[in-house]
Amino acid sequence: MPDKFFFEGTEDKPQINFDPRNNLFEITGNSFPEESTNFYIPVLHWLDNYTKNPNESTHLICKIEYLNSLSAKFIFELFLILQKITSTGKTVRVSWYYNPNDDFIEEKGAEFKSALEIPFNLIPLN
């Protein structure tokens, strides 16, 4: 089992906490790095490696406040990698949280959901 992937998060980069041992997968905060590629490639590599021997069930929790267009592309890429888990017979699902006043994040979640084949729940925050 790969070790955890952790990034603390900054003003323009999200906190990333992928912790297979505790079966916790979270992305939280803002995402509009200047170099999205440099930021997301290591995350994608880690996740790709994880899908080779994933937990019985993987639940990714996204609580994103803002994401720019290139981050959206990389996060979609990340969902596609997770989607591969379904072919191994194990399960994967995504919970996409949004503020009820925030169409921007809600719509982005709905777009992702429409383009994916894994359970993808849109959940309003209280």
Partner: peptide, 19 residues
């Protein structure tokens, strides 16, 4: 554009202006 697979030299893929 969203579904295009990632290529290393991808700079922005023009997705920003479309958005």
């Amino acid at each position: 554009k969203l579904k295009e697979r990632y290529i290393p030299e991808m700079k922005g893929a023009g997705i920003g202006l479309i958005d």
